[in-house]
Structure formats: structure tokens, C-alpha cells
């Protein structure tokens, strides 16, 4: 009995070591190697570089607060919005008064930035994203902001619309996901107009 237990413990110990080597090192290292070999850009984080300087990742949203840029989804990452090092969400329940306060504040911010715009504000511009790093907004949310951006940049609204349309990604296979516009890419494209 005791001998059998001892043997089993020994087996358990050796097996854990073997599997740690196999699934904890060999597996991720081979995957890393193959990933770097086959898809180096994706495996490295889809980085956006400018003159050798990393300006971000096309997958991670960045904070934009000036009227001349498209504003992304509200972010609740720790210490400051769109802190890439610290993903996170508000986790407000729908009945939480703080959520309603935050929504009202954002509503006011959007209305004040573009008082002439009487269209209803798409709700995702008022509600925080899951990761706090959501790179996208819906095309609807982009079009809603188009008048503000056009005014601030002094360009025609049609130009802005064109850029939005150029950067709109549709559903994958026409079914999966939602249509979306990458805010970072959109804003880079705006800056490139100059």
C-alpha cells in the first residue's frame, strides 16, 4: 500500500516534469518559432512603425480627444484611458448610477463639441469597451463624428465620408462580427491628407 503510493507519487512527479517540458516549453517555443517564421508581422503585434519608431499597433486603440480626430470608444483602462499596458473595463452593472452619470457626461461632451449635429448618438460612443483598447468604432459612429472632424479640419464632409468608407471593414464572410472602422488608421489617414 505505502509502496504503491510512493510509486504513484514518483510517477506523478516525473510525469509532471515531462509534460512541463513538452507543453510548457517545447510546444510554445515551436509555435513561437513557426509564428515568427511564417507570420512575423502578426506574431510581433501588428505594429505600426514610422521612421523606425513604433507608433502603436493597428490592433490596439489609442486615445484621441481633440475635435479634429475621430474619438474612439470610452476606455476604462487603469490610470489613464487606452493604457495598453493595463487592459480592463468599467464592469458597471446597468443599474449602476455611475454608469448613467458617465453616459450623461459623454453625451454632453459630444453635443458640446458639435452642437449642430442633432442626429442620435450611437450608443457605443457612450458605453465603455470590454478591453478598454477597442481599436474600432462602428461606421455609424464614424459618420456621426464626420461633421465635427470636417469642421475642425476645415475639409469637406464628403472627404471625411470617403475616408470613412475607405477604412470600413465589413463582416467577415458577410456573417461574422460587425462592420467597423479602425479609429487609429482612420486618424492616420486624416493626418496624411495634409
Amino acid at each position: 500500500m505505502y509502496l504503491a503510493c510512493f510509486k504513484q507519487i514518483r510517477t506523478a512527479f516525473i510525469m509532471l516534469i515531462l509534460f512541463t517540458v513538452l507543453t510548457g516549453f517545447i510546444y510554445p517555443l515551436i509555435v513561437t518559432g513557426l509564428g515568427q517564421l511564417l507570420f512575423p508581422f502578426q506574431a510581433g503585434g501588428s505594429l505600426i512603425k514610422e521612421h523606425g519608431v513604433t507608433r502603436g499597433s493597428s490592433l490596439l486603440g489609442q486615445s484621441f480627444t481633440q475635435a479634429s480626430y475621430f474619438w474612439p470608444r470610452p476606455s476604462h483602462t487603469a490610470t489613464f484611458p487606452y493604457n495598453a499596458a493595463s487592459s480592463g473595463a468599467s464592469n458597471f452593472g446597468l443599474s449602476n448610477p455611475n454608469l448613467l452619470t458617465a453616459i450623461h457626461e459623454r453625451l454632453v461632451k459630444y453635443t458640446q463639441a458639435d452642437p449642430a449635429n442633432k442626429n442620435p448618438i450611437p450608443v457605443e460612443l457612450l458605453m465603455g469597451s470590454g478591453s478598454g483598447l477597442d481599436p474600432d468604432i462602428s461606421p455609424k459612429a464614424a459618420f456621426y463624428q464626420a461633421s465635427r472632424v470636417a469642421k475642425a479640419r476645415g475639409i469637406s464632409i464628403e472627404t471625411v465620408h470617403t475616408i470613412i468608407n475607405q477604412h470600413t471593414k465589413n463582416r467577415t464572410l458577410f456573417i461574422l462580427g460587425e462592420p467597423r472602422v479602425n479609429v487609429l488608421e482612420l486618424n492616420i489617414a486624416l493626418d496624411a491628407l495634409k
Partner: peptide, 16 residues
């Protein structure tokens, strides 16, 4: 004056 057609987006990602 809010367009809630995309539903309850709090804590959800746009692409999803």
C-alpha cells in the same frame, strides 16, 4: 437622443 440600435455595448467590443 441616443441611437441604441446596437444594443447594450457597455463592456463589449465593436468588432465583436
Amino acid at each position: 437622443n441616443i441611437d441604441q440600435s446596437s444594443g447594450n455595448m457597455e463592456g463589449k467590443e465593436t468588432r465583436i
